[in-house]
Structure formats: C-alpha cells, structure tokens
C-alpha cells in the first residue's frame, strides 16, 4: 500500500492505496466522486477526463501516486452544489449537447480545457479536432459542438469557483 495526498476540488484529501490504483478509481471509489466516468478504460473515449494542475488528462491512464500533491478538478468542482451551473454546463443544457449523459462530464472537462488553451472564439473545425479524444455514442457531435462554441463565449469573465 502507498500513501497519497492530493487536492481535489479545493479540498485536501489523503488515501492509502494499492500502487495499481488509477486516478479514476481513487476519485470514484475512495472519494465517491462518481461524476467522472469510466467508459472504455483504454484511454480512448474521454469519459474519465479531469483536470490535473489545470490540464485535461484521462484519469484512467494515470496511477494516483504519479500525481502525488497535484491539484485535481472534477465535474463536481465546477459549480457550487446549489449554485448556478458553470457556463459550459449551462451551454450543454441549453443546446441539448447530451442524450444519455454518460460522456458529458468528460466532454465538459475537455471543453473547458479547450477554452483555456484556445480562447473564447472557437470555430467548428477547431472544436471537432480538439474533441478527437472524446466519444459520444448516442447522437453524434452536432449539438456538442454547438454547446462548446456557445459555452466558450459564455466563459468570458467567468471565475472558477475553486482550485
């Protein structure tokens, strides 16, 4: 077993884990933050995307001890429990950028990372290229792309609640 300490959504957390524990397992099973999903478990589908020190990564492909001390943001950390949604979440709601919702947490975390790197004015080809690591098996991507373009604009001036 190995001891780990991280900051998750602004809170210090610790755990004593088997070295094989992946970040996504730690989030879901130890911390019960089940908003981060496991889709393919082979680093392809993007359902498990979270931010590690502000960068989008696939939490199914990182051992939790590899990122000891890091600052993690998950989908649960984007908005206060009873407060307004994050602008990107709101844009997904508004544009119906989901059907079953399984891929949505990863889509939203990827979308926010995209805005952080590429800015608030995102055209269609850019969004589709940047979404290569996120799969949606319900509807195709049309409304997801629309939601991200709108969410990117709406994020201007938005201050992240924590982390």
């Amino acid at each position: 077993m190995t001891a780990v300490a991280l900051t998750v959504n602004g809170k210090a957390v610790t755990g004593d884990v088997d070295p094989r524990t992946l970040l996504v397992q730690f989030l879901r099973e130890n911390l019960r933050l089940t908003g981060t999903h496991v889709g393919c478990d082979t680093s392809q589908c993007g359902a498990c995307v979270v931010h590690v020190n502000g960068k989008a990564i696939k939490s199914c492909t990182v051992f939790v001890w590899q990122i000891e001390g890091a600052n993690i943001t998950t989908i649960e950390g984007l908005a206060e429990p009873n407060g307004p949604l994050h602008p990107m979440q709101e844009a997904f709601r508004e544009h119906h950028g989901l059907q079953c919702g399984y891929c949505t947490p990863g889509m939203i975390m990827t979308a926010i990372d995209m805005v952080n790197r590429k800015g608030h004015e995102l055209d269609d080809p850019t969004i589709r290229h940047e979404l290569e690591g996120n799969l949606c098996r319900c509807t195709g991507y049309h409304n997801i792309v629309k939601a991200i373009a709108a969410g990117a604009k709406a994020m201007k001036g938005h201050v992240q609640v924590q982390s």
Binding site: G46, V52, K58, T61, E130
Partner: peptide, 9 residues
C-alpha cells in the same frame, strides 16, 4: 499525436 489529453501526458 493522439488527442489533447494524451498529449498532456
């Protein structure tokens, strides 16, 4: 290479 999340690691 890969996708943005893969390129971060």
């Amino acid at each position: 290479i890969g996708d943005p999340a893969v390129r971060h690691r």
